[in-house]
Design a protein around this nucleic acid. Structure first.
Lengths: 213, 213
DNA sequence: TAGATTGTTAATCGATTAACAATC
DNA sequence: TAGATTGTTAATCGATTAACAATC
């Protein structure tokens, strides 16, 4: 259920942007490929109510979800790893739009320390605790090779971040008090390969010929 | 269950690299934070068997999973969107290591078409069908702003890709024959904010003071 | 009012876990 | 042999869906 909240939020944001004031569980379900029952069940746990015959107020719904998902305040994060992925995240505009502030980008390689990534300068790992504590950074983003993922996680936790976003191609172990969410880029690609094979490995080999099953 | 297969695969790869020949469901479970029951259940569906008292052969297990996940052959993909994220993916070495080949990077902005991203030249969207069909590209990677995600998906599907990896910050609708896997970067960050709040919003505000609950 | 839509209860479904006989 | 570990069945758990009375 928690995994769906960001999707409701994103959708209701775009509805509001389009000037729509009310939305039914049925319509929500159609756009997000859920059942209306699931939508109602999910939203009934939240601290607001819909209205019979009209549906849910997009304004109240957006506000409620924003609060729940931390989108009503600035969330500070640091990125560890100034490789292609780390730099891309640091430069990605949609994070800033989404209410996140990147407080620092770090790398263990002395050769890249000091270089600029947008407005930020890449810093040494030794600076991590002071930045995290000084700016009360909540989230550490792990964007390093698989082999150093766990070590970076440990250092972030020790520095005092409250949660980890893991983009490294490895699983991270952390104490229960520090939640970790995996962004499974490589794993998702493999999952996709599996899904493609499962849905019929022969389909589409003659690309372009769509129908004649 | 499918979501765990890439994790088994990654883990058994690193075991093999470390020279380990046998692994038990118990040990696998510990490293991946599962129960041994789940591991045995999952692996029992695969086309190979463990051996009592020894466990699973890492060699056979790696091979079986590689085949299932398409890691035994080269998988061709195209990236649409040559922004920070798209370029980072194109340049990311771990994909090549993982057996993926990037056959092209595309962008709708004429100003960036022609620029180089590593060995690749950014191409116009009009070239998409010929590349996908010419090189029998299986996967389309969507790395564009949320607003154009669906349109790009439609064009990729029409070009003949068999599956989509969606990095755009929006949900993609596709026919059932074309699987989509979402890489939820922004949604994961929001989920993480939710998890941090749920696990006690006051904990750690005085960063560094770990224990005194 | 009539009808659409919520909130909620109960039923279904699937996934996880426990347990244990088989076996190496 | 004794003991560790698999494969599988059955039990549990949680999440999804169906159904429907309440209500605007």
């Amino acid at each position: 259920m928690v995994r769906r909240l960001p999707r409701y939020y994103a959708h209701v944001q775009s509805l509001r942007a389009g000037g729509i004031e009310w939305i039914s569980s049925k319509s929500l379900a159609e756009h997000l490929e859920l059942t209306s029952s699931t939508v109602r069940q999910d939203l009934s746990h939240l601290d607001f109510s819909g209205i019979s015959k009209r549906g849910y107020s997009t304004q109240v719904m957006e506000q409620t979800l924003a609060q729940l998902l931390g989108a009503d305040e600035e969330i500070r994060l640091v990125i560890v790893g100034a490789g292609n992925l780390g730099r891309a995240l640091a430069l990605h505009g949609e994070f800033t739009l989404g209410g996140f502030r990147i407080c620092g980008i770090f790398d263990s390689d002395p050769k890249v320390v000091g270089r600029k990534v947008g407005r930020l300068e890449i810093r040494a790992m030794d600076d991590l605790p002071s930045v995290v504590q000084g700016e009360r950074v909540q989230i550490g983003v792990i964007a390093v090779p698989a082999a150093s993922g766990q070590e970076v996680a440990d250092r972030l936790i020790l520095s005092g971040v409250l949660g980890l976003l893991n983009l490294a191609f490895t699983h991270i172990l952390s104490p229960k008090t520090v939640p970790v969410i995996d962004v499974r880029i490589l794993a998702s690609l493999r999952e996709l390969c599996y899904a493609i094979r499962a849905s019929g490995p022969l389909r589409g080999i003659a690309a372009g010929l769509r129908s004649p099953g």
